[in-house]
Simulated assay, not measured.
Amino acid sequence: MKPNDVLHIVEFEKFIPPFIELTRTRLAADRHHFFFIHRGDLYQPGEKSRIHRLSDYAAKPIGLAVLAKKMNLAGKIVLHGLTHFRLLVLLALQPWLLKKTYWIIWGADLYAYQKIGTSWQSRLKEMLRRFVIPRIGHLVTYVSGDVALARQWYGAKGQHHDCLCYASNVYHHLELPTRNSGSNLQILVGNSADRSNNHDGIFAALLPHLETGLEIHAPLSYGDQQYADEVTKFGSAKFGSKFHALREFMPYGDYLKLLSGIDIAVFNHERQQGMGNIISLLGLGKTVYMRKSTTSWQSLTNLGLTVGNIEDFKPAPLSSELAERNRQIIREQFSETKLVNQWRSILETH
């Protein structure tokens, strides 16, 4: 590893392999190194150069020592999320590294502030976060409200870099299926089986409109499968054959095709979450409802996008004019070219 190289510390998530591919095809590939600190065994790279996994080491302490050495050698460190205890310990023990560190704020890593546990492990983890976050030199996100919360909650002082971060947040053009005028409205509820989706609140908003003709689709393949069972049982009981629990993992292309057939999507998260889905839906001209209190609502509406407030839910798609305006804004603001240029500016200009 050379002094101007970039070390990405990651855990496996579905949007990480496309990001690695982006660095190899659109950025200076030889400068980018990846270390999987969690669930790296799930990533099976075709090209293994500059890929390291903690799971490859017989003893974790040896792997962590290798990671610590790479962190000191790297010109820049990029944290893809900040959730894991081991990573927080490494950063706290080497505070001189934090000024060259770039934290991509995922959401759950920031909003953990609202759900601090009572166990000594939770208190220790939060103590480490309160030491590390104020000293991180760079904050990376396109949701400015999350930066404001990081500054408010943790005293973060790092420079904010506006960035779309991942290809999952980029507009993808799709040909929309022809909709029959008399067909039922296709409703998407939530984006996963995470309890933060608050499906019960969405169902309560939909129930009064059931007789208007709704087909309800709930993506539940990703997340807490016990909760997925609860949502499936509840949704089936309330909506019968009109409720469709999507329990099997879908390839990304197939999932985009599903979204292209949706008329209205309803998200009930209390925090910034599911933005990749929301961006895709708005780019397809779909009607999206969210909580008005979220930082994601603020970011989207600040761009001029029309987003519905879940408290004012109505089973009616946007007018063609508003839908086209949303599509145009998404095409301009969430392009792959913009994503690549942002990363080049952040990581490769000096």
Rank of each mutant, 00 (worst) to 15 (best):
residue 142 Y to F: 15
residue 142 Y to N: 10
residue 142 Y to S: 09
residue 143 V to N: 13
residue 143 V to M: 14
residue 145 G to F: 15
residue 145 G to N: 15
residue 145 G to C: 11
residue 146 D to H: 13
residue 146 D to P: 10
residue 146 D to E: 15
residue 147 V to P: 05
residue 147 V to C: 13
residue 148 A to M: 14
residue 149 L to M: 15
residue 149 L to T: 11
residue 150 A to H: 14
residue 150 A to N: 14
residue 152 Q to G: 07
residue 152 Q to D: 15
residue 153 W to L: 07
residue 153 W to D: 05
residue 154 Y to A: 10
residue 155 G to H: 01
residue 155 G to Q: 00
residue 156 A to R: 01
residue 156 A to K: 01
residue 157 K to G: 05
residue 158 G to K: 07
residue 160 H to K: 09
residue 160 H to W: 15
residue 160 H to D: 03
residue 161 H to E: 08
residue 163 C to A: 08
residue 164 L to D: 01
residue 164 L to V: 02
residue 164 L to G: 01
residue 165 C to H: 06
residue 165 C to I: 15
residue 166 Y to A: 06
residue 168 S to H: 13
residue 169 N to Q: 06
residue 171 Y to L: 04
residue 172 H to A: 12
residue 173 H to A: 14
residue 173 H to G: 08
residue 174 L to S: 10
residue 175 E to W: 10
residue 178 T to S: 12
residue 179 R to Y: 02
residue 179 R to V: 03
residue 179 R to W: 01
residue 179 R to A: 01
residue 180 N to E: 15
residue 181 S to K: 13
residue 183 S to Y: 03
residue 186 Q to L: 00
residue 188 L to A: 00
residue 189 V to K: 00
residue 190 G to A: 07
residue 190 G to D: 07
residue 192 S to C: 05
residue 192 S to Y: 11
residue 193 A to M: 05
residue 194 D to R: 09
residue 194 D to M: 08
residue 195 R to W: 04
residue 196 S to I: 11
residue 196 S to T: 12
residue 197 N to R: 03
residue 199 H to L: 04
residue 200 D to R: 09
residue 200 D to G: 03
residue 202 I to A: 05
residue 203 F to V: 00
residue 205 A to C: 10
residue 206 L to N: 04
residue 206 L to E: 05
